[in-house]
Design a protein around this nucleic acid. Structure first.
Lengths: 216, 216
DNA sequence: AGCTCAATACCTCATTTGTATGATTTTTTC
DNA sequence: GAAAAAATCATACAAATGAGGTATTGAGCT
């Protein structure tokens, strides 16, 4: 390794901060000489002496980690911020990303994964714990978030064919359009739809589609 | 051991497809019995026989992988799609995620990383190669709420009354039910709905509701 | 004072849809 | 191989819907 990646750590809990520092310093290609127990100290010091990567705890006494990033990022756009948190709270994730954080990982990640992540971050990537990535992807693109295992079990009572038809109804297709696309008679489609209504306990397309898209 | 994760592979190149299948089947807790050389076959078969996780190549002959996801995802919201690609092209990433893809990894990922990713995906995460995550994060605050802004402008052409009525349609109400609730005649409601259709350029309730709920 | 637009309301017509009943053929499952 | 489930199609009727046009009222703007 030629020049090592210079890392700073902002974390109020002594044991975690020291473990992280030991981990980073013990690994080849990484150096951590700057650690801070609060955001105010970090802000002051990192403004003057920037580093490559900052591991930033979110929940800090006084100013929180997100606010600290918001202030530091504009001053040193090249400095990469990796938010470290215990919980993948949705709001915090977005707030942090908007503030300019580049990466977001859960503290329960393995040491090896953490070091990988630091390197990826330094190389221009945005490593994220996958559960956090799900939130980002889901909300940003308005994708129906299935996530939970206990989602619409109601739809399980539908047959594959019924789901197929319902999928097309959800796009605003008429009976006839569905029939044409599936190469069956409109009567058949209507029969299927009728069966779907019975199973889902609804009486209109919109209501059925709402259930289908989990909008109930 | 618990139930294995059922995986399907859509990939036109024989060697890659077979390697992937061997990798998946060779690992503990994974099973892959369904592989497809094109999107059309996958679409047809997976509609009827859904699996847990689909590894989807983007560049396929005929229909591409993104289009395939767009069609399959609404039918089986629980099915998880992992896009596999060689390049991290920005547009494709967004397009795929908007289409409903849950995960996005580069083909050069290691076998171990791939298997990890499949498991994380199945557990509700959205594993992404960090270079791809960077693009997602980047656009996150570059373009402040693009989807919402776009959706809103479309709905802005509607009058408050029209939005009120559309909101009730989105709950599956009939003309008459809306009329009763708003204390106006059904004819009026129909006129409003007609105007809404004209403004939103649609011809059915479901299509209008889709626009209203930003599911276009 | 004149203009525009939203909201209200009615009429007509053709089409779509929801409901019901019944039947045949595949496919799945036991 | 029999039973159950799914998919197919037909006919029929009443209600809901989509597409046109027309008209009155009141609010807001110039």
């Amino acid at each position: 390794m030629n020049t090592p990646i210079i890392v700073a750590i902002v974390e109020d809990k002594d044991d975690i901060r020291q473990s992280l520092a030991i981990l980073v310093n013990g690994a080849d290609g990484f150096v951590c000489k700057q650690t801070y127990v609060n955001a105010e100290d970090a802000l002051d010091d990192l403004t003057r002496y920037p580093v490559d990567v900052v591991l930033m705890d979110i929940d800090l006494p006084g100013m929180n980690g997100i606010e600290c990033v918001r202030l530091l990022k504009p001053r040193h756009p090249d400095m990469q911020f990796m938010m470290c948190t215990i919980y993948d709270e949705e709001e915090k994730v977005f707030e942090a990303l908007k503030a300019g954080a580049n990466s977001f990982i859960l503290k329960r990640s393995s040491p090896a994964r953490l070091l990988d992540a630091i390197r990826e971050l330094h190389d221009g990537g945005s490593p994220m714990s996958s559960s956090i990535a799900r939130k980002v992807v889901g909300s940003f693109f308005n994708v129906p978030a299935p996530a939970e295992a206990e989602r619409n079990t109601e739809l399980d009572v539908l047959t594959p064919r019924e789901r197929e038809i319902l999928g097309r109804l959800s796009k605003g297709y008429s009976h006839k359009e569905v029939a044409d696309e599936l190469f069956v008679s409109p009567t058949t489609v209507r029969k299927h739809i009728f069966n779907i209504y019975e199973k889902l306990q609804v009486h209109t397309k919109v209501a059925a589609v709402n259930k289908y898209l989990g909008r109930v």
